[in-house]
Design a protein around this nucleic acid. Sequence first.
DNA 1: AACAAGCGTGACGGATTCGTCACGGTGACA
DNA 2: TGTCACCGTGACGAATCCGTCACGCTTGTT
Lengths: 232, 232
Amino acid sequence: MSKILIVEDESDIAELISLHLSREGHEAICIGNGLQVMPAVLAQQPDIIVLDLMLPGLDGMQIFKRLRADTRTATIPVIILTAKGQVTDKIAGLELGADDYLTKPFSPRELYLRITAVLRRVKKVTHVSEIQRGRFMLDRKNMKLFLDGTALDLTTIEFKLLTTLMENDTAIHSRADLLRDVWGYNSDVATRTLDTHIKRLREKLGAAGEHIVTIRGTGFQFQTELAATQPA
Amino acid sequence: MSKILIVEDESDIAELISLHLSREGHEAICIGNGLQVMPAVLAQQPDIIVLDLMLPGLDGMQIFKRLRADTRTATIPVIILTAKGQVTDKIAGLELGADDYLTKPFSPRELYLRITAVLRRVKKVTHVSEIQRGRFMLDRKNMKLFLDGTALDLTTIEFKLLTTLMENDTAIHSRADLLRDVWGYNSDVATRTLDTHIKRLREKLGAAGEHIVTIRGTGFQFQTELAATQPA
DNA sequence: AACAAGCGTGACGGATTCGTCACGGTGACA
DNA sequence: TGTCACCGTGACGAATCCGTCACGCTTGTT
């Protein structure tokens, strides 16, 4: 559920949009130009704004510029509505930082799709869950490992094993810990499975496999910075 | 809040650490080597011990071995402090079961980070990478789905598909969107793959599979709250 | 009612994944 | 130096995963 502020003077259009959006589970608030837009935005804190450029009083573009100038509202996504003829010269709106635009006439469904698309895009950006360690970057969302910028495909277990190791670099992960965290084994079982997967990980990492260090008799450790090797 | 026992003879270092840790909301207790370590540990029952190996009297390593030998203290995490030069020969500490080590000089912040990392690992405190939607709870970390509290195993693709759907419930995900987000397909390809995986997901969800709704001609949608079905 | 487009479903086979085992190598310690 | 515990590695087979296809059903339209 998202809160959507609609700035539109034609009340029938506003109602139509609002009805459709609320049916899809959103909260739609409509205001015309008679009311001040900026105070309404600050009061309502909408997730997204739908702005008609063809407002009779203050030019819609002026409102838009004001929204972008104020730091409190600059990050709120805006979808612009224009009439058919305005399109070309008003695409300037996009260059000013609008997230999308729509030309009248349009179907409520179309607007809805644009809104959800924009919301998804915005929310995705702020929802990144990544682990950065030196040359390594773990992308949880896409279950990928980036090594020096190039993507590597890992299997489910490999990914989880590496994630566990990397989440606490500098920490030693005992065999029992890893078997518990990655495999869910409770009791300490004697198995070579862990070793095999460590090996497969190191293989995929190539030379960078050295970052997975064996602590003999104890377990394994991910070292972001490799200890300097003594030259001969 | 955790209780941390610091075994350190240099009082200024001990105070610095203690001050920093207490500012972060922890309870820090400092003792030097003049006092008996083992009795202090047994009396205080700390959540974690920070042990300086460079104690003048009894060797720090001896204390550490004793901590590990006693069943009452063997499970308490220990972070070892060493001077720069000692590193290589003292890594032996790790093999004896230390959870982490730090070489002097170090910043209090660094120690704090290590401590919280170890505590998190031990306490199994998981990150908040969870999505809650009605009866469903997605656990990103363990790639599991909890439905009404019981865990369901999903395959990699199934998990990602459901995650994508659930991240924006109320949004309709077009076939093209899903193929792009889950499979990484760029162009719109005609395939039944998506349908097959939707079906497999619904199967695993059982009756709750109804939460995945088909929007004919458009795509799919995850509905946290099912629309009321009209009785006959 | 007839039709077409869109969707659900079962089955199949190739590909991947993963646990296990045996064997050889390596480091620790006496 | 000998011994032993521990670790690395290659191979193998079972299980799973997953894309594809054919076919039938459903839905919406004329």
